[in-house]
Design a protein around this nucleic acid. Structure first.
Length: 110
DNA sequence: TGACTGACCAACA
DNA sequence: CTGTTGGCCAGTC
């Protein structure tokens, strides 16, 4: 049985942070991973969103380091991700998000 | 049980 | 600039 150890809840940490992303802002996998510990875990962040089916998580606000919607391919429709972000007031540039404007920094602790 | 895969990132040739 | 390699963790076959 899995205990409630924080080390085992790496996914949980990701969900918590992603769920806290304010509207009209975006964050990156690497940034979340770095906040949790190391950037090398960035893979786990992306994997967490795919492994767990939780529509409550604004996964569309999570982009890669380059601001590209790499996760959009896993959405019901590849354009859904962009539509949601645009609806929140985010302007796309070359099919990417200008992180300098909309980048939101997650906090390690609530 | 062991090996492969995956929504990433950074360094190196 | 492109291609390859290493690193992390969890889930699936």
């Amino acid at each position: 049985m899995k205990e409630f150890s924080e080390k085992n809840d790496y996914f949980n940490n990701v969900y918590k942070i992603v769920a806290k992303i304010p509207k009209g802002k975006v964050t990156t996998y690497g940034l979340i991973a770095e906040t949790l510990g190391n950037k090398k875990k960035s893979r786990i962040v992306g994997y967490a969103l795919n492994a767990v089916v939780d529509t409550k998580l604004p996964c569309h606000r999570v982009v890669n380091r380059n601001g590209e919607l790499s996760g959009s391919i896993h959405f019901p429709t590849p354009t859904l991700m962009r539509e949601l972000l645009e609806k929140e007031g985010i302007k796309f540039i070359d099919n990417k998000v200008p992180l300098e404007k909309y980048l939101w920094k997650p906090k390690a602790k609530s």
